[in-house]
């Protein structure tokens, strides 16, 4: 019991920033000014309360109805994350199928190559990405972020795990019944390995919703920025507005997190298994 309480309290520290964001977004400008004054003047201390004296939705109202810029940026994030995920699944699922089910020359080499590429951080691939994107004239467009991300090999690896766990005899039976390879992939492979695909989608969404490095390097025009770059631009005088924008930014990944916690954990665990 003691252990449970200690773990729970530690867990509370982990989610505490969310409480600060939510309470701050409901606070009036004057209340915020009082609490956060220390950050500007450099005197005294910051204060806080989780229950604002006069809760207000005015920051949300301003954000959603009076700031078209915010909607543009929100839409940019949706577009980048959505197209990237769709592209990833479109490319990764068939590739994972080929690697998991068939035997062909260089299969082992390709698998190693894919795992190796998945492990490289952005800083290593930044220059090579830039050279290609610049050559294709895509720098300064959303495609500069979407295309390299869609070709990421991480989802291939996760989905590969799912396909690997299908019994070969099942596929053999389908073949004997005369099903074509494409049909087997579509009707048997995809539905039965959907857990791996959902894991890849959940992990991918959390990743691509909060991209910083890529848009920072490849997008100069602020009207193309995703939320993750726009948020920090909001000044301290507009703290309430910033808190409200943070909460709205947090809603989609939080939603995906709660719906997909099982897939998320399965995906993480799958990444940790060694073949």
């Amino acid at each position: 019991m003691m252990r449970r309480i200690l773990l729970f309290l530690t867990g509370c520290i982990f989610v505490a920033p969310v409480l600060v964001l939510v309470s701050g977004s409901l606070m009036s400008r004057f209340e915020l000014g009082e609490y956060l004054g220390a950050l500007e003047t450099g005197e005294g201390f910051v204060g806080w309360t989780l229950f604002p004296l006069y809760p207000t939705f005015s920051h949300y109202g301003r954000l959603l109805f009076e700031t078209p810029q915010f909607l543009t940026v929100f839409w940019n994030s949706v577009k980048i994350a959505g197209i990237t995920l769709a592209g990833q699944l479109f490319l990764a699922a068939p590739a994972a199928w080929a690697l998991a089910v068939y035997h062909f020359r260089r299969r082992g080499f390709l698998l190693t190559l894919y795992v190796g590429l998945m492990l490289l951080p952005f800083q290593v691939t930044m220059l090579s990405n830039f050279l290609v994107l610049d050559g294709l004239g895509l720098i300064g467009t959303h495609w500069a972020i979407i295309l390299p991300a869609a070709c990421s090999t991480f989802p291939v690896f996760l989905i590969y795990r799912g396909f690997r766990s299908l019994p070969q005899s099942l596929l053999e039976a389908a073949r004997i019944d005369g099903a074509g390879e494409w049909r087997i992939f579509w009707k048997i492979g995809l539905p039965l390995a959907s857990n791996g695909i959902l894991s890849a989608a959940v992990l991918g969404f959390l990743e691509y919703w909060s991209l910083i490095e890529q848009p920072l390097a490849f997008l100069k025009d602020p009207s193309l920025w995703p939320l993750s770059l726009y948020l920090p631009e909001i000044s301290l005088e507009q703290a309430g507005y910033s808190f409200a924008a943070s909460v709205i930014t947090l809603i989609p990944p939080a939603f995906v997190f709660f719906i997909g916690q099982d897939y998320l954990e399965a995906g993480i665990a799958a990444a940790g298994l060694k073949e």
């Binding site: 449970r4 982990f14 969310v18 600060v20 450099g42 959390l206 939320l227 916690q261 998320l264």
Partner: peptide
């Protein structure tokens, strides 16, 4: 539930916590 609490920071975009970190780690911070 406790697992979810530990995992949740994964879902919080870095941009959303920049201001909170300032509030905590500033010279006059929490």
């Amino acid at each position: 539930t406790i697992r979810a609490m530990f995992l949740f920071p994964m879902a919080i975009p870095a941009a959303a916590i920049a201001l909170v970190w300032r509030m905590v780690f500033d010279a006059g911070g929490l």
